[in-house]
Structures are given as structure tokens and as C-alpha cells.
Nucleic acid binder design. Structure first.
Lengths: 133, 133
DNA sequence: CTATTGCATTACTATATAGTGATATAGTAT
DNA sequence: ATACTATATCACTATATAGTAATGCAATAG
């Protein structure tokens, strides 16, 4: 096997082995996994989660942090709540949300790293075009 | 700060700190990240990626591995290709694909673990309902 | 009681895209 | 040249869902 330069590379290799061995994915499993990714496939939801971070916030606070429409934020929060990604704590009139599943930050981070790689690669390719020496 | 039981917990905490500090996410960045998750939000694409695994496969092989429609598979492969998730190597008439970005397996694995947790929790809750002692 | 506030829900429009049959194209064989 | 094969693309339908204004509803205030 080829030597890996990075920790992350080795970790991916290990996970990959496990993934290929353990899961022979049923349609239902695929739906569940895809659904989870779909939760994170809306910029508005990511914006809300990013606004929340480690803190608990009321809907009103989230509204001003995101600058978005109330009905829309409420709907997205409801979606995130049912998916178990955030939790809700009612206190009088206000509803307070916080991120319940912090693995989503790890997911986002992995994606960010990968995007940065991709972007750098493209930038280098373009640099070579315009300054081919 | 509360003591974490698991490695993954600590890693998430670290990543979380970095995430909150480093990124103050622009609209464009959010779109990019969301787009990446969207790639993985279709069961059919996950099925193709799972079929590919570590191997290179021709479209025909992918067709029989997934049992799906040719036009559909071709379209999904094109989407995955443009996203940089798979690579393509043409050889005569056949087009051979392989997974180029193996971090997607790490993403899937994280999601799978989380889903399992969630499912077990729910199962336990139901068990308590029907056998409350 | 009525008014107000904070949030959730409804009803609707607009958009995006998965799936599919038909067709196009490119490589290979004869 | 024609025929065949492997893949890609086109044109279309059907479905899902994001955004939004209007409305509902529950908790507090006066």
C-alpha cells in the first residue's frame, strides 16, 4: 500500500475499510444517510447552525443573527429539530434552540478542508495557464 | 469544560473551536458547502459511490451493480465528476470511473454512526414504553 | 377581559432536479 | 462504407421544497 503523508489520509483509509466491510447498504439505509446530508444541503440551515455555534439562542436572536424571514427560520428550525440536529427548550414566550448534534461541525469542517484543496488546485492550474513558466 | 468520554468527542470540540473562530461564513461559502452536501443527498449517488468503493468500474459495470437506468446513472456520474468526487478515464468505448475524493467515505461513516446512535436511543425509548421496568 | 409578543403553521408560488425514453456521438468491427 | 456498442445528452414530466404573507395560538402584560 502507498505511504500516506497525512493523518487524515490514514484515518480515511481505515474508515474506508470499515465502511466497505460493514455496510452493504439497503435502500432504506441509503435514504436515511442521504436524508441526513440533505439536512445540511441548504445554505439557510447552515447559516442558522453557524449562528448557533455552541450557544443557545432564542428564535428572535437567530432572526437578527441571520437577517432572515421569521416563518422561514421557524420552518428550518422545525426541520432541524425533527432531525435531531438541534434541541428546543421553551421558556415562557420564547423558544430556545441549541445544536444537539455537534458532529455536524465536524462534517462541515471536512467539507471546508476539501473545498479549500479543490480551490487551491484550480487556482494553481489557472496560474499555470497565465504564467506557464 | 465538561470531560468528554470519547476521542471523537474531543476531536469534535477542537474542530468546533476552529470552525467558530476561522470561518465567518460568507453567502458564497455557505453555498459551496451546502452544494457539497447536496452531492451526497441523493440515494442513487450514494449507491453508485458505494458500488464503486475503492475500485475503478465502467459505466456498464455500475449499471449492473446498481440495477439503475443508464441515462440516470450517466447523469449522476456527470454530476459527481464535475464536483470532483469521482474521476473518469476513457479507454476505447468504455468510460471508467473511480472515487477521487475518499473523504466522502469518512463523511458517510460519521453520518452512519450518528444515525445508529439516534436509532438505538429511539429503540430504547420504545422498549421503555412497552416494558417500563 | 383585551392587547401584545414570540413563535408555529398554513397556503401558496417558484424553482430545482430526479427519473426516463429517445436520440446523438464516438469508438470498434466487418 | 454499414453495423454495433458504450456512453452522453436532450426533452420532458413529476416531485420536492425554499421562501413568504397571512393567520393561528399560547403566554404574558395591562
Amino acid at each position: 500500500m502507498v505511504e500516506r503523508k497525512t493523518d487524515v489520509g490514514n484515518r480515511v483509509d481505515r474508515r474506508l475499510d470499515l465502511f466497505m466491510k460493514k455496510h452493504d447498504l439497503s435502500d432504506e439505509a441509503l435514504e436515511l444517510i442521504a436524508g441526513r446530508f440533505r439536512m445540511l444541503s441548504e445554505p439557510m440551515r447552515l447559516r442558522i447552525l453557524n449562528a448557533l455555534g455552541e450557544n443557545e439562542m432564542s428564535v428572535t436572536e437567530i432572526l437578527s443573527a441571520t437577517g432572515a424571514n421569521q416563518a422561514n427560520v421557524s420552518k428550518h428550525l422545525s426541520i432541524l429539530l425533527h432531525a435531531g440536529i438541534v434541541s428546543r427548550r421553551k421558556e415562557g414566550l420564547t423558544a430556545n434552540y441549541r445544536v444537539a448534534d455537534k458532529t455536524i461541525f465536524e462534517l462541515c469542517d471536512l467539507v471546508c478542508d476539501r473545498l479549500k484543496d479543490h480551490h487551491e488546485t484550480r487556482q494553481n492550474a489557472l496560474a499555470n495557464i497565465f504564467a506557464p513558466k
